[in-house]
Design a protein around this nucleic acid. Sequence first.
DNA 1: CCGCATTCGTACTAATTTTCACAAATACCT
DNA 2: AGGTATTTGTGAAAATTAGTACGAATGCGG
Lengths: 220, 220
Amino acid sequence: MALDSASQNQRRSDAPEVVVARLPQYVRILTRLLQEGAEVVSSQQLGEKLQVTPAQIRKDLSYFGRFGKQGRGYSVIHLLERLKLILGLNSFWNVAVVGVGRLGRAILSYPGFTPDGFHIVAAFDSNPDVVGETIAGLTVSSLEELDEVVSSKKISIAIVAVPTEHTQGVVDRLVACGVRAVLNYAPISPQVREGVRVRNIDPVLSLQSMTYYLTDHPVD
Amino acid sequence: MALDSASQNQRRSDAPEVVVARLPQYVRILTRLLQEGAEVVSSQQLGEKLQVTPAQIRKDLSYFGRFGKQGRGYSVIHLLERLKLILGLNSFWNVAVVGVGRLGRAILSYPGFTPDGFHIVAAFDSNPDVVGETIAGLTVSSLEELDEVVSSKKISIAIVAVPTEHTQGVVDRLVACGVRAVLNYAPISPQVREGVRVRNIDPVLSLQSMTYYLTDHPVD
DNA sequence: CCGCATTCGTACTAATTTTCACAAATACCT
DNA sequence: AGGTATTTGTGAAAATTAGTACGAATGCGG
Ligand SMILES: NC(=O)c1ccc[n+]([C@@H]2O[C@H](COP(=O)([O-])OP(=O)(O)OC[C@H]3O[C@@H](n4cnc5c(N)ncnc54)[C@H](O)[C@@H]3O)[C@@H](O)[C@H]2O)c1
Ligand SMILES: NC(=O)c1ccc[n+]([C@@H]2O[C@H](COP(=O)([O-])OP(=O)(O)OC[C@H]3O[C@@H](n4cnc5c(N)ncnc54)[C@H](O)[C@@H]3O)[C@@H](O)[C@H]2O)c1
């Protein structure tokens, strides 16, 4: 008794969502450390880079197993590998972008998704003038092809950048096609059935949560 | 004794940051309700729209005062007014955009900032080919003019969309000019001195925090 | 005008999240 | 090899955040 399967198993169920949300940051720092040639890193050093306490890092990791060595720290390459596995980043996810407007184009030409585990393999727009256009090597498809392409390309993640009023409808269609995670840029929070994940990116809310702390008056 | 200044004062100090971060969402819903002609709203109704418990809404609001009426609810227009005042959204904040690339252009032409309290009044880029260009009615300035423009236009908020490696430098310059809040789009977290606020927008981290829950395997 | 249905504001309780602190393990120095 | 300095992993404590539940108002219907 005592030493059971915890260390070789991911224990997916019982890690709090806040903890899971911090893991990608650990992955990012570790990736950088690996590139810089670091072989080991302590929770202390990691904490300094991330501005969190070393205890929090150790506690977070302990939800998933035991990855460190006392007196030494963590093997950068090994911990990175394990975290990617836990997050499902050991191979690539195919992603669709829906809405090829100003923002959608910036997203399509952003090179930062690929090194971090995401391949943008399809783009959709409802505007016939946009359909057929090629951006960053990808030809924009029409919405009619959505179901077919999502299935054939095994797309389970979508980035949605369409006008607010079309967002819920687009998300509904995507979910019906089998998409299980949505990154939404419109200033609403689309409703989805249980089991589908949504993250919203909303610069206005971010700005408004800062002005509270700007004690002097805004310009008038 | 007993009934003191709490209700007519904002009590800025003691509201937890999580609570402050929810207020902009309340503002957004209330704005919509006002447009729809609603006069009063209960914490119950608000909670349904926001997917939070009515108790949380009442608790959150109670950090700042007493805005409701028993048996009736909250006056939409009155509560909205008060929340905007608390968040410093009663008048406009002038904002600068630094980095007029693909993303910066999308931001400059996004009409969603103005109705919510932010005027983009300046844009800066280091590329001489971009300086002088006019986007969405705004002419791009060179970085030499940064200090002068930030002062003269009373800019205290900046949106930064420059390449990762230039981000920390740009943020440092902005802070030196007097900017006190930064919305950063690069995949790092710029370090700033105490008193300056930063929010990061990082779609990759958002995606990576969802893949954990996508139990079936990514494409390989 | 009275009773009943609402709904707030908040004291209290519960749950969650973070931090502390220490035994156990490891590395390193002499 | 022995001693000292590190550093992990984790129970326990502390702090934060969320939820319950109820008294006190308020409005409404008859
Ligand atoms: N531009 C920004 O910086 C910015 C910032 C914050 C939020 N947003 C939000 O992002 C979304 C897109 O913004 P944008 O500036 O790119 O707008 P845009 O108008 O430039 O582009 C929207 C695109 O979506 C397409 N579209 C419309 N309905 C569609 C549908 N049903 N299915 C597929 N495609 C459809 C349009 O043809 C167009 O190409 C909006 O919701 C906006 O509020 C944008
Ligand atoms: N495009 C996206 O969808 C996207 C998504 C996520 C993150 N980002 C991040 O946003 C930032 C901008 O992305 P982009 O796609 O617009 O890049 P981009 O290369 O198209 O634009 C960057 C702009 O910044 C300017 N610039 C460079 N150094 C500068 C400096 N020191 N001061 C002022 N301006 C400077 C450049 O001249 C250029 O115009 C990057 O950090 C990128 O990682 C972009």
